[in-house]
Amino acid sequence: MQRSVITLLLVLPIACNGGGTSSGTGTETGTGPGTGTGTTTESTGGETPTTGTTSPPVTTTTATASEPTSGDPTTGPTSTTATTDGPDTTTAATTDDSTTGEPAGDVYDPDEDGPWQYDDLAGEIDVDGEAIGVTAHYPTSGPEEGPYPVVLLAHGFNLPPTQYTNYATRLASHGYVVVNVDHAGYLFGPVDHVANANQLLAGLDWAAGHPELGPISDVDNAGATGHSLGGKISVLAAMYDARIKAAITLDPIDGANMCPNMQACPDVSGLLPIAIPLGFLGETLDTAGFMACAPAAENFTTFYAEAGPPALQVTVNGANHMSFLDDVASCGITCSFCQMPTLENAVVNELARAYVVAYYGRYLRGNAGYDTYLTGAEAQQRYVDPGLVTIAEK
């Protein structure tokens, strides 16, 4: 069917998340290919967690080359150059809300701002001739000096990076250097998810070489978080670059809508598992129906089904595909095609921010004290018991 510009606008719910035909299939929580056995624990509001048996993948794919390439995860790096603007003077409010945790360090409540003050600066990177904007939020003072773990942020298709600023500022206040990358994932640009992943990874090189960020950035201990298409390319980036040690994504979609070929838009869930912790937050309101925003055959559960342990799946009950943005009310037409959520945008955004902070506290800082906020007592009390989420882990 030929598509006019008007038609393209009508398919925004699919284009927005990179949806379309993919080789992934809808899978029940906790199952995956292979012949081994494992244990998957699910928690639901008002119920006692149950234990089932799953079949995790037999093979393990490790992260490959330390720098990305366009089109092939096993070959050399892309060429990048960077120019930057100076930092501004914005400073976050801080909090004393912390408790002494495991020997690895203190545990700070991820649902509150952490004890670090932070600043931000903007720049631009040239990645294979494409000008990619970047904004960094970084700690300036706090209970520990750097270098700090680095977290890459990837926006959803046709969505601005500014819709994820809440995640950046919360992470920076907990002692992370956050690079929010404006990759070329927009409606009227070329559709190339491999190129988008390389653009995201260029943020690590930019941070490492930046005079302000370089001395405080531990780019060899990095995470990747994205929403929708950004979630897919975050996992893809982790496959390309061993510097990424963990990834937690927000309603990722493993689609290939309007892609020229599968080389440009690979079936990422089909390439799992990889040898790093993976977390997936998602929803089920937008998984069915005409032009679903998050089709069941490509949604977050397909990533979790193929991921090896440790892996975490958090289903946010009552959220829709766009609920993970900072402010849906300012999103405009791009957000107007998804199902109406029954859970407030602010509630989902706060919950998701807390999970992202807790996940990186656990897997980039190696502090097991954050388990209580992921699957333990605090998660049960705050999210599971009130019926906000269902949790599965393996």
Rank of each mutant, 00 (worst) to 15 (best):
C338E: 15
C338A: 15
C338F: 14
Q339A: 15
Q339K: 15
M340F: 10
T342C: 01
L343G: 01
L343C: 02
N345W: 06
N345I: 05
A346H: 09
A346E: 14
V347N: 11
V347D: 15
V348S: 06
V348L: 04
V348W: 04
E350A: 13
E350M: 00
E350F: 00
E350D: 14
E350V: 02
L351H: 11
L351R: 12
L351T: 15
A352P: 09
A352R: 08
R353M: 08
R353G: 13
Y355V: 02
V356M: 02
A358S: 11
Y360C: 04
Y360E: 03
G361F: 12
G361C: 11
R362T: 12
R362K: 13
R362L: 06
Y363T: 08
Y363P: 06
L364K: 09
L364G: 05
R365P: 01
R365K: 13
G366A: 02
G366F: 02
G366V: 07
N367K: 03
A368R: 08
A368G: 01
G369W: 13
Y370P: 15
Y370S: 04
D371L: 01
T372A: 13
T372H: 01
Y373T: 09
Y373L: 05
L374T: 05
G376S: 10
G376F: 10
A377Q: 13
E378I: 10
E378C: 00
E378F: 03
E378W: 02
